[in-house]
């Protein structure tokens, strides 16, 4: 009956998602829509979990439901809260969407049934990944193995993507000024509860970073979680104090350092004339080399993601609101 339970949960979650998005279309209060989007991300994370994608669920929850929602709220604070319904272009939207949807449905018709173990994708590369991870890399989390070793070049690109997003936001918004000698609003309950929470969050972040090989986790999730601890501190205790703990000026450099750690680890193999990112060359024992490579590379990712996420948050929260009318 386990398979059936998964299917039931799957259908329920999908139904939730449809309702949430439908509501988002109708509602014009952007604050409500943002919160709905946060719920949307979270329910998708649950759906990912139901579909056996634990690492993805983890990342979606941390990044989508966590960071993106905070970011959107920060942006809302700096912009307008309500949408002007009269300016909707439904006439343009519906035909395009119906056409695209029809094309997609047409395309999906030939897909193998969901969950079918005989589908082509389960027989070509997947068995090799599973087998080779046990033989050559020897870590339990296959997704981390594929991410950091087999397709490490993609992950390098991904690290650069997050780095470039940080650079882009910095170019657009700067690091913000927090000269206001503002004492944080005294809220005893929040203060007492949040302090130990932050400690736990930071420890959890470190745990996720280093246990990404053995369970769900890895550099990305760890970086976001670790940054969340600081963001929480900033939200409750005020920016001024947060920026004293981690000044905004070192964050871009940390981000660059993360990218460099990744790149230099990859370049190490070039010394023994092995290809870029070939971890076997990092140690006399290939499996040990793989472990070392994955450790270094995930550290680079974690550092880059942490600093960039925090940097982007600072850019938004440190920006002064400009009032019109």
């Amino acid at each position: 009956m386990i398979a059936n339970l998964e299917l039931v949960i799957d259908i329920c979650l999908l139904a939730f998602l449809i309702m949430i998005v439908f509501a988002s279309i109708k509602i014009t209060d952007l604050f409500a829509v943002t919160m709905l989007f946060g719920i949307f991300s979270f329910v998708s994370a649950l759906l990912f979990l139901d579909l056996d994608a634990v690492d993805v669920a983890f990342t979606e929850a941390a990044v989508g439901a966590g960071f993106t929602t905070v970011l959107m709220l920060s942006a809302l604070r700096l912009t307008t809260r309500f949408e002007n319904v009269k300016h909707r272009h439904s006439l343009l939207g519906l035909p395009i969407v119906i056409l695209t949807g029809a094309a997609l449905l047409y395309g999906v018709a030939d897909f193998p049934n969901m969950g079918d173990a005989n589908a082509p994708i389960h027989h070509h590369l997947a068995p090799d990944f599973i087998r080779l991870t046990q033989q050559k890399i020897d870590i339990p989390n296959i997704v981390t193995a594929v991410l950091a070793s087999f397709r490490g070049y993609d992950t390098f690109g991904e690290t650069v993507v997050i780095f470039s997003a940080g650079a882009a936001v910095l170019m657009l918004l700067g690091m913000g000024h927090v000269e206001r000698k503002q004492e944080p609003e005294k809220n005893l309950i929040l203060w007492v509860v949040v302090k130990p929470m932050i400690a736990l969050i930071l420890i959890f972040g470190l745990y996720v970073q280093f246990h990404g090989d053995f369970g769900a986790g890895g550099g990305f999730q760890a970086g976001v979680i670790f940054a969340s601890g600081f963001i929480l501190y900033s939200l409750v205790f005020g920016e001024t104090y947060a920026r004293k703990v981690i000044p905004a000026t070192i964050l871009p450099r940390l981000s660059a350092l993360g990218v460099l750690i990744y790149g230099v680890t990859g370049l190490m193999s070039l010394i023994s004339n092995k290809p870029f990112l070939d971890y076997n060359a990092l140690s006399s024992n290939p499996v040990g080399g793989q472990h070392l490579g994955i450790l270094l590379v995930e550290a680079g990712v974690g550092l880059a993601v942490f600093s960039t996420i925090l940097l982007i948050y600072y850019s938004f929260s440190g920006r002064e609101v400009i009032h019109y009318e």
């Binding site: 470039s164 650079a167 450099r253 660059a256 350092l257 990218v259 790149g263 230099v264 370049l267």
Partner: peptide, 13 residues
């Protein structure tokens, strides 16, 4: 590919 990528990081550093 890697040289321009790392150079970008160096610029920020």
């Amino acid at each position: 590919v890697v040289v321009p990528l790392l150079s970008a990081a160096l610029c920020v550093l």
